[in-house]
Design a protein around this nucleic acid. Structure first.
Lengths: 180, 180
DNA sequence: AATACCATGTAAAGAGTTACATGATTGG
DNA sequence: CCAATCATGTAACTCTTTACATGGTATT
């Protein structure tokens, strides 16, 4: 039920085609929701059938036509109602943590994975910090509507910072061991 | 493909029945993998059919019989091979962040949700810290095999700490706004 | 007497992944 | 000429969630 609302949230921010949404879900929106283009096209068709969103066909020169989707009034009402319904904390499913938990079965492989993930978190953090620097110069002066997306970026920064620090803690703890 | 490995990881730690696993996945193991009892029973049947796990029927007095599952040698080999294969970062799907992103559609509801989630994170953090205090008195002196589960607990503590801090940051930023 | 806990499952529906499919344009 | 980008979709499969189903024991 939630990809629908993630799409509404993205489209309420600004109208997009399915293709553009797929790219957003692979980039900034992907920091809090992942979805493939197949899933997105299927869900857009459903939302359109329910009249939660509408579209205009836009013809472009040198490129295929696209369907520019926008949220209808009904869609906005549905989104607001969904926000109003309390939700659970996001359920965790983290393969790396499963690997670490079972680490004694393959200790050296776990250390390698930690190093790999450490680098990825570092890269993501750099990207987020860059976005923060470039697009949010004075956060306290933002108008209310801009504070909401800014806060999701802040979560991303905190999240990646935390993972990076944990990878370091883990690598140090496991390195200490082997040098004993 | 991964619930299988999460179950192997839990069973390698120690043998359990499906019922006990369901409780573990609702508690400590749930910090990195969520699964319902229905999913668990179905997956256990599959793993047993593939001979990655085996079980002994245990009869108890005053309680129904249970099937105590354990990981076979083949299962351990499979688990080690899976750990060896590099994995992606866990994909995020967080309803609260979707709500915050679309916050301008229902600002007061978002603040309420932030407050609710803040309390839940606070409670979880307290539980994790309690576990750390009670069962890991001197982490640097732990034998290697105990360091692995300890590190997943550390992740849990960092994760909840980070969420709590972010909820506070968000609530403050949104409160500032309304007082202007 | 009612509720909670122990213990195991099936069935149906919904969500997500992987593979397949097409076709034009642009840049190296 | 080959690869990448733009743009949209279908089909099959797997995974997850929700609801249904049973039945004994322990506690309030």
């Amino acid at each position: 039920m939630s990809l629908a609302h993630a799409l509404l949230a993205a489209l309420v921010d600004h109208p997009n085609s399915g293709y553009e949404l797929a790219k957003r879900f692979d980039g900034s929106v992907g920091f809090f929701w992942k979805a493939s283009h197949q899933q997105i096209y299927r869900e857009l068709a459903k939302l359109e059938a329910q009249k939660w969103i509408g579209f205009q066909a836009v013809s472009q020169d040198g490129r295929p036509d696209k369907k520019l989707y926008h949220v209808t009034e009904l869609g906005q009402k549905q989104l607001a109602e969904w926000i109003d319904r309390p939700c659970e904390l996001a359920p965790l499913k983290d393969e790396l943590l499963v690997k670490v938990f079972a680490g004694r079965v393959a200790p050296t492989a776990v250390v390698l994975e930690l190093k790999r993930h450490r680098i990825t978190h570092q890269e993501r953090l750099a990207v987020y910090k860059q976005i923060e620097k470039e697009t949010f110069i004075d956060p306290s002066q933002l108008p209310l509507e801009a504070k909401f997306p800014y806060l999701t970026l802040r979560q991303g920064i905190r999240y990646e910072t935390e993972w990076l620090a944990w990878c370091d803690e883990a690598l140090q703890m496991l390195a200490d061991q082997s040098s004993q």
